[in-house]
Design a protein around this nucleic acid. Structure first.
Lengths: 112, 112
DNA sequence: GTAATAAGTTCCAAAACAAAACGTAGGGGC
DNA sequence: GCCCCTACGTTTTGTTTTGGAACTTATTAC
């Protein structure tokens, strides 16, 4: 089954996952909630490749979770800010944060 | 970057995602919250391949989110039940459910 | 004119995934 | 006993996605 098929699933959880159901997308949202908005910030913070990052940002914009915003006209630079729709996923990430703190202790050295 | 590297990330959200950060895993949890516990139930309900399902169940058991339980000794049959650790992710799925209902209307015909 | 910055794009090999067949260990009908 | 059914997986074979690194474009700072 493909992503696109999931978006019309009877289950609202499945439809949500068709947008945010992979680790990179959720890490982008985490960064947004931490105040980041720029491509380079996401790339450095999450450790994902620029290739994947560009693709995920594109989808988040298409789905209305983020908005691509021109923040400098010369040179042209765009960043990404949360929409209200995107803001409403914040509580889910907060639960994951608390769960990680409680159940997933760091075993070795922190990397990034 | 690989899954395994994420599990020692400084960020608790990232560590959480190293366990549940893909759509199939989260759909398995959804099914658990709906009362399902059997391999065949997960396979049919989510539409994922048996191959992937077996792998994800294995990891969820290793991580202590689910418990593999012998529910019939002859023939030997196992099912999967939530641990307390697994139960504590339920609120995150509830938020995704509400978000999906609000922001992801079904456009075409529901399939599964 | 040379280097730096920032947002991407392109390329190729490696890994993950999808689909479907196969395996295994019994149970039940007859 | 023999055959099909159930249920939890495993194996196999191709396709798709991902990872990693280099490249592009436009502009500013020196």
């Amino acid at each position: 089954m493909k992503w696109s098929e999931l978006s019309d699933n009877w289950c609202p959880v499945a439809r949500t996952l068709s947008v945010v159901g992979d680790r990179w997308t959720l890490l982008i949202l985490r960064d947004c909630y931490l105040g980041k908005s720029k491509f380079e910030e996401f790339a450095e913070s999450s450790g994902m490749t620029r290739h994947i990052l560009a693709e995920r940002l594109k989808r988040l914009v298409e789905e209305g979770v983020l908005e691509r915003r021109l923040y400098s006209s010369a040179p042209k630079r765009y960043d990404y800010v949360l929409t209200e729709k995107g803001e409403e996923l914040r509580p889910a990430l907060r639960i994951m944060k608390d769960w990680g703190k409680k159940h997933m202790p760091v075993r070795r050295e922190a990397k990034a």
